[in-house]
Amino acid sequence: MSLSRAKSRKRQRLYLASLAVLAAAGAAALGLTAFRDSVVFFFSPTELAEQSPMSPDRRLRIGGLVEEGSLQKLADGKTVTFTVTDMQHDVQVAYTGILPDLFREGQGVVAEGHMNPKGQFVASEVLAKHDENYMPREVADALKKSGHWEEIEAQNAKNMRN
């Protein structure tokens, strides 16, 4: 085989490989755009409000921030209710079971369950969603004191809306 022939074959393979990657990237991009709307991990309270009334048979996940001061324990001692908010709409959630350690008022949460006819969300599973900030307690306290905490909370709320 002559040298130039070998070279042109190498070039051909280079083109073919680039083409394959481009084609795969295109296919992935198309698939992902389709995915983006149809496969969501959770709905925000606003999205839920747009879709209501929701069939009680439909299982879904909702996500948002647990509203400050909304957590209540019911008389049976096992059921809790709280409000999930995205700062525009609220959803009432009732849940019987153990809450994750990170479950806090003002923090993100994702609940799986269904809407009951009263418009309350009955959760069978509650997961905590935390933000991307990591810091020692002293730094968090200092931020709260200096008034920079609101920026973090605003970011947090924005993340949950997505």
């Binding site: 991990f41 925000s44 933000d131 991307e132 993340n159 997505n162």
Partner: peptide, 10 residues
């Protein structure tokens, strides 16, 4: 791109 349980990049 999607809403996830996993938090965004830190």
């Amino acid at each position: 791109w999607w809403n996830t349980l996993h938090q965004p990049a830190s």
